[in-house]
Design a protein around this nucleic acid. Structure first.
Lengths: 127, 127, 127, 127
DNA sequence: GTGGTCTAGACCACA
DNA sequence: GTGGTCTAGACCACA
């Protein structure tokens, strides 16, 4: 369900937090929807339950998830979410642009380069 | 010279390593070019010298930089660099695509969205 | 420095949080004052470092403490602290009154009873 | 009938145990008096029956309550109760004093402060 | 030296 | 079944 990369340098719990935040912002997780239990997520991603728990705690503190005794965590009725999907994409856009500049890739060619990359992904998938 | 973000979750020394790797791969740092001294970088970025040193050490171990007694670190004559600029952009492309998917942003619209974003940046800059 | 009671039913990290909150509210910990390191507190109270860390994290999230790399935690310059000392005492006053009622102790006699108790404590101390 | 606070950090069953213990010590529950059924208490306090049951079990083990087949729990004929009401108030008194000290409130002023607080409560009630 | 992250695992409270 | 707390201990990033 989530993509957790332990070698990326970004703490696992932060990766989880960001992904859930995006799924809620994008409406793929709706208010009232339940999240996988701590134990379930931990075992499917081969990660310690406390790591998952830490992510859930942070999202609760942010008002995005709510905790109810004996129940799985669920998306808050009115999740605090000032950011729009567009804003939540900016960090990735900025990262891409920064990397391109440092690689000497002309920034104006990035949209085309991205387009090619997507096409290539689609081809791999279909083959 | 570099963009170091202490709050990003990614260790500072790793941010440095990746940026220098890209500058070398993209040819903006050429074989024989000198890098700023540990002390200088440390003070301009308000970071501990050991953090810079750790990044330089790792790049030396990778064969990208060479250290010569009493001289600043410099880019290796034939920097080991299997990856092409294109490959070095893939992580950022993948991140962007993953984030878009989780936000419910149609992936096909990403190139256009990126184009708009670049246009907007240019406008801000010129104003 | 702190009074941690593992058998009280109240999680240790919560006991710590409440006590630090009070020390800050009462001015015994001033903005800029350092707190004991996680390891130090952990060893003097025979408690796991992560338990202390959890308390510090919560206080940072509340804006009462600030964290600076490689430095001990310190009291925030302008600690978020809407509550006055008087308000922070109410839970204990309410607990006392509730207990008295259930014990059939006439509530009006509580101030006198408290006075006696304090006198007794002073006597024990001096003897 | 009881005051159960799920957010206090103290387990609900412990809150119940302490309150019943006080009601018995203070004579408001007399030997032979019946307690509400597990189901009734559970529904009036919106709590799981097992939680109530756990409290009753503990009080039975302490010899304060007795269980008789098909009958509601009742207060034991000679409830084991070494503590006097005065002793049962000490934890609350100690908590109050500790909190005051940490808040920098002069301990000698506590009785007066408590008196004021009680007066204020009475006023609110009558208005 | 400082704090942070993570694990493996025990045990608790609650539904 | 759910999540919470805590431990002992390893290892990391940073000053």
């Amino acid at each position: 369900m989530f993509i957790l990369n332990p070698g990326s340098g970004i703490p696992i719990y932060r990766q989880l937090v960001e992904q859930i935040r995006r799924l809620v912002a994008g409406g793929q997780l709706q208010p009232g929807d339940c999240l996988p239990s701590v134990r379930e997520l931990a075992s499917t991603h081969a990660v310690n339950p406390m790591t998952i728990s830490k992510a859930y705690n942070q999202l609760e503190a942010e008002g995005i998830l709510v905790r109810r005794r004996g129940r799985p965590m669920e998306v808050a009725a009115r999740p605090t979410q000032a950011d729009t999907p567009g804003q939540l994409l900016e960090p990735q856009l900025d990262e891409l642009i920064q990397a391109a500049r440092q690689l000497g890739v002309e920034v104006d060619t990035l949209p085309e380069l991205l387009d090619d990359y997507l096409r290539q992904l689609r081809k791999e998938k279909s083959s």
